[in-house]
Write a protein that binds this DNA or RNA. Sequence first.
DNA 1: ATGGCTACGATCCGTAGA
Length: 256
Amino acid sequence: MWKVAAWNVNSVKARLDRLLAFLERENPDVVLLQELKCEEPNFPYEGIGNLGYSAAVFGQKAYNGVAIVSKEPATDIVRGFGDGGLDEARFISATVQGVRVASAYIPNGQAVGAEKYHYKLEWLARLRRHLGAHYQSNQKFLLGGDFNVAPEDRDVHDPEAWRGQILFSDPERAALRDVCGFGLDDTFRKHHGEAGHFSWWDYRMLGFPKNRGLRIDFLLATPPLMEACHSARIDRDERKGTLPSDHAPVIAEFKL
DNA sequence: ATGGCTACGATCCGTAGA
């Protein structure tokens, strides 16, 4: 089985012990990381290297930062959308074991109507254009990461409270559907249809103990890869204990 | 216990996340 995870670690430096423990515990073939919050030279190459992993990294100081951690070294690494524009470190793609994979950290948006909200919607539109220009949905392609959008009511602990709010507004959800319209489906929903599964809980207000969460982190796959997907889950236990990330890893297994 | 945020970068608080 080919095992892949996507995880917003909220600082790879602050979460290094947990990342290494995750690699040892889960033994994934690929981990798509978001929110490294470090520049590329400061990525913990040595720590993951001791466990047999290498990484393709697109970092920046203090904010954002994405990586593709893999047992088999990634090739044909592209940082950003490859269109020459100056970018925040939010997208990286590479080939691992013959499969094209990408790690994405979609902008948060801050608040509906804010400048960052419009940036978020434009970023999602740009992602959709990038996919159409560089990929084909009849080929195996995996897009994982923190999308900062909850797709449906069943992905939100209190849909009526969140309706129209940031992370759950109609334009954000439409923009995510448009990205998936390229030919991507949610590996988690292939295997679990019920409500109440979340990947993020606010650090504040007892979000996790009260299970007030959202499902905003996904592993999205094209049809040929979706057919090969045998299981998917969210590693909710990773959110427990001392100083967790506010996001839990999402995991999927494929029979390539 | 799964418990009232956390990380960063610049100072001893402000900004950002979602």
